[in-house]
């Protein structure tokens, strides 16, 4: 029976203690986060926000100080809970004595695939990540991008229901980044939950449906990206507006951005935007466009992480 959430973290906390003085460092604090099955979820946060610690607690590489983590309803500490999980760690170090094929074979065996199944799937996966001709080459000869794609193949080998990717495009050139994104896009609609931990906001914005932002180990913001970045104001683009009318418009408290042969007025409310339009029309100016403006995920991120208190 399938559960509603792929990831269920409740009150998760991690406190590190320094070895000699025993000073406490709170890496993650009372974090509750539920990731529904089948969605593309991005985890964001500045450096040291606790993102990687959180991911490692989910995968039992780090023992939580308190709280609980579940994967598909099973306690994350139970090895069986990790069977449907594919993971690509940040700064991975695949043993360089492996060939690409050997590496996939080894991790496939650890994921519980039998030899027959591994032999069947490995060639297809090598082809999928563009390493068909590199399967028998030692991975010490691979570039960073190739290693990343091989790591992705490793994570996909056992057909996971949850894919956890920690900085999947880190150190990868734009072409490689596109290739990785294409592979991940290919999983859309297959029911696989994709959980990405990344500092590349544009990447998360373009790929994910949901996002959570961590700040100082706490959950600062969580929600659907489309609702987080929309409804922030209205933008009016106009031309031929006399200076006197502009002065009047400025007095409404809106911001005016000069643009080539035109101006862009950023209004906060719909009423304000309509007043601006009325004034432009009254001064014989031309309305070129009117749209609801949305802030980018970067704006949301900056606002969230810079605010004094977590939302």
């Amino acid at each position: 029976m399938r559960t509603e959430y792929a990831i269920q973290a409740d009150g998760l906390e991690k406190i590190y203690r320094t070895r000699f003085r025993g000073r406490e460092i709170k890496a993650v604090s009372n974090l509750t986060l539920h990731v529904p099955e089948g969605v593309k979820f991005g985890l964001l946060g500045p450096n040291g926000a606790g993102k990687t610690t959180f991911v490692k607690m989910l995968l039992s590489a780090v023992n939580p100080t308190s709280g609980s983590a579940k994967l598909f309803g099973k306690d994350a500490r139970d090895p069986e809970a990790r069977r449907p999980v594919g993971y690509l760690p940040e700064n991975h170090r695949f043993p360089t004595y492996f060939t690409g094929r050997g590496m996939l074979d080894f991790y496939g065996a650890l994921s519980g695939l039998d030899a027959l199944e591994r032999n069947k799937r490995i060639p297809g996966l090598l082809e999928l990540v563009g390493l068909k001709d590199w399967g028998d080459v030692r991975i010490k000869k691979y570039s960073k991008g190739m290693l990343q794609r091989l790591g992705l193949a490793q994570a996909l080998l056992h057909k996971p229901r949850l894919l956890v990717l920690d900085e999947p495009t880190d150190g990868v050139d734009p072409v490689g980044r596109r290739e990785i994104r294409d592979i991940l896009n290919g999983l859309t609609g297959t029911g696989v939950t994709i959980f990405i931990n990344s500092h590349l906001l544009s990447e998360v914005e373009s790929f994910c449906e949901y996002v959570a932002i961590l700040k100082s180990g706490e959950l600062a913001l969580e929600g659907k990206i489309s609702s987080l970045i929309a409804g922030r104001g209205y933008r009016v683009r106009a031309s031929g507006v006399p200076e006197a009318a502009l002065a009047e418009i400025r007095r409404l408290g809106v911001s005016i951005l000069p643009s080539a042969d035109a101006i862009e007025v950023q209004a906060v409310t719909l009423e304000q935007a309509n007043t601006v339009i009325d004034k432009i029309r009254a001064a014989q100016g031309f309305i070129e466009s009117f749209s609801a403006s949305s802030s980018s995920l970067e704006d949301v991120f900056i606002r969230t992480t810079k605010s004094e208190k977590a939302a």
Binding site: K56, L59, S60, A61, P79, E80, A81, R82, R83, V85, Y87, P89, E90, N91, H92, R93, F94, P95, Y107, L110, S111, G112, Q154, V164
Partner: peptide
């Protein structure tokens, strides 16, 4: 036990 190697091993379904 090298970082980046152990975390991947521990993510597999083994104790």
């Amino acid at each position: 036990l090298e970082a980046g190697r152990i975390s991947l091993l521990l993510s597999k379904p083994l104790t």
